[in-house]
Computed example of a mutant assay.
Amino acid sequence: MSLILPSESVAARSVVGVADDVFAALRGESASLPRAGSVVLAIIDGLGAISLRAHAGHARALTSGMAKKDVAHSVFPSTTAAALTSILTGVWPGQHGLVGYRVLDPARGILVNQLTGWESEGLDPATWQAAPTVFERARAEGRPTFAVGVAAYAASGFTRATLRGAEFVAAQTPAERVEVAYDLAERHPGSLIYCYLPEADKAGHRYGLDSVQWVSALEEIDAALSRRVPPGVGVLVTSDHGMVDVPVHRQVVLEAEHLDGVRHIGGEPRMLHVYVEPDADAAVVAERWRRDLEGLADVGTGQEAIASGFFGPEVTSAAASRIGDVLVVARGNGAVYDGTAADQRSRGMIGQHGGLTPEERQVPLLRFGAFAR
Rank of each mutant, 00 (worst) to 15 (best):
P6Y: 10
P6T: 14
S9P: 14
A11T: 15
A12V: 14
S14D: 11
V18W: 00
D21V: 06
R27S: 15
R27F: 10
E29C: 12
E29N: 13
S30E: 09
S32I: 15
R35W: 08
A36F: 01
G37P: 00
A42L: 05
A42G: 13
I43L: 15
G46C: 10
L52E: 02
L52T: 00
R53N: 03
A54E: 12
A56M: 08
A56D: 04
A61G: 13
L62T: 03
T63D: 02
G65N: 12
A67Q: 15
K69Y: 02
D70N: 15
V71W: 03
H73F: 07
F76I: 15
S78F: 01
A81C: 12
A83P: 09
L84D: 01
I87Y: 01
L88N: 00
T89N: 08
T89I: 03
V91Q: 00
V91G: 04
V91W: 08
P93A: 00
P93K: 03
H96G: 05
Y101N: 15
R102H: 13
V103L: 10
D105W: 09
I110S: 06
N113I: 10
Q114I: 03
L115T: 03
L115A: 06
T116L: 08
T116Y: 06
E119L: 02
G122V: 04
W128P: 02
Q129L: 11
A130G: 08
T133M: 07
V134S: 07
R139I: 10
G142A: 07
T145Q: 05
A147G: 11
S156H: 09
A161E: 04
A161P: 08
L163Q: 03
G165K: 06
A166R: 07
E167F: 04
E167M: 09
V169R: 15
A170M: 07
A175T: 14
V178Q: 05
V180S: 10
Y182A: 04
A185F: 09
I193P: 11
P198Q: 12
H205P: 08
L209R: 11
S211R: 12
Q213A: 14
S216R: 11
A217W: 00
I221Q: 07
I221M: 02
R227V: 14
R227F: 01
G232S: 03
G234H: 13
S239W: 05
D240Y: 06
H241G: 02
M243G: 09
V244N: 07
P247S: 01
P247V: 06
R250L: 06
A256Q: 12
H258R: 02
H258K: 01
G267K: 02
L272E: 08
V274Y: 00
P278S: 08
D281G: 10
A286N: 03
W289S: 00
R290F: 05
D292Y: 00
V299F: 05
G300Q: 02
T301H: 09
G302R: 00
Q303D: 14
S308W: 00
S308A: 15
F310T: 07
F311K: 07
E314M: 05
E314F: 08
A319Y: 04
A320E: 14
G332L: 09
G332Q: 15
G332A: 12
A335N: 01
V336A: 04
Y337V: 08
D338Q: 07
T340L: 09
M349I: 14
I350T: 14
H353Q: 10
E359A: 13
E359K: 03
R361K: 14
V363A: 01
L366S: 01
G369L: 05
A372P: 15
